[in-house]
Design a protein around this nucleic acid. Structure first.
Lengths: 175, 175
DNA sequence: GTTTGTTTACCTATCAGTAGGTAGACATGC
DNA sequence: GCATGTCTACCTACTGATAGGTAAACAAAC
């Protein structure tokens, strides 16, 4: 993998666990084995790095969601959607990047905050389409809020069960 | 108000908008009109301040919830619970302190993270009691996750409507 | 195929600014 | 006189960012 991509990967991990303000160029440089000036070579300013990480994260999530959109029933598509978040929480052992950055939204450089809003709006659009032909269903922001909150709560309380409570509650409300 | 309490109040506001890592003794000192050394006099280390803010916030929230517990129906009690969060979001124009700190949980000093967990567990216990005699209802972690996520989403997207979508979705599921 | 110029990807060194934190002087009030 | 609260002055560590240099890769010209 290129140094550029290795930095992106290390930055995503640190952003998701520590938040924007707590990530430093030096820590990232240590993570990938270069000096901090070299990180600046690839991402001149911190906000350049922030925007790039959110964009790459958005691409990664929607690549997974594109597969989930092919399921035949609305409930299966919602199950696929939930699965993407569950994977982020359980396999990657961290909350959603945009939950972390959303919390910090007011203190983020504008281009980074904008990228986070793009992520959430794309999620709303995806859910609107995926559940278009479901009879009775929660609104898309309800679903996103429930899952982002569930990740946050499960992470804080160290309890995957709390995430699963939310997941099954959502699934029971569709179709 | 005492300087001690003025610092607590300023710290709560800054913690809720910027997060633990982004709050500095200098900023707080400026907020209340003293020097940073004087803030250290009242709260020797940053984690002392963090714990004190979370404890004061927890007291404040549960003082409001104690009133809501007196409502006669489970649905009214849930409406009261939601009202406390709505007030925090709309009147105080910030997300819940413990949503912010929960996101950062992994990077917090242990005593601060513990105080956040105490807050959430107390919320679970309150809801369990308030909705004990409701026939069909979401689990307590579902309700908390939905509301914390709703604050986060509404804050990021600058849309109170998204919070209200979640609030009415929750209310429709009780009794 | 060797010289020449350019680019890529790093480095060391340093900057001004800010972080949390401390020591000790000074004022106020009991 | 002593406790309380605030101050000035300072420390070390770290922040994002920049300047300037270098080794290797690559391309073009001859």
């Amino acid at each position: 993998m290129s140094m550029h991509d290795r930095i992106l990967e290390a930055a995503e991990a640190r952003l998701r666990s520590d938040g924007y303000g707590a990530v430093s160029f030096r820590d990232l440089a240590n993570d990938v084995g270069v000096k901090s000036a070299s990180v600046h070579y690839h991402f001149p300013r911190k906000e350049d790095l922030g925007v790039a990480v959110v964009a790459a994260y958005t691409d990664k999530v929607f690549a997974a969601l594109d597969l989930a959109m092919h399921a035949t029933t609305p409930q299966d598509r919602l199950a696929g959607y939930i699965g993407v978040f569950r994977h982020a929480l359980v396999q990657e052992n961290a909350i959603c990047l945009c939950a972390m950055l959303g919390a910090e939204a007011r203190g983020l450089p504008a281009p980074v905050a904008d990228a986070v809003r793009v992520f959430f709006q794309a999620n709303i659009d995806w859910l609107d389409e995926a559940l278009a032909d479901a009879a009775d269903k929660p609104k898309s922001p309800e679903i996103i809020a429930a899952l982002e909150g569930a990740m946050l709560l499960a992470n804080t309380m160290d309890s995957i069960a709390m995430f699963e409570d939310v997941a099954s509650g959502l699934l029971s409300r569709v179709e």
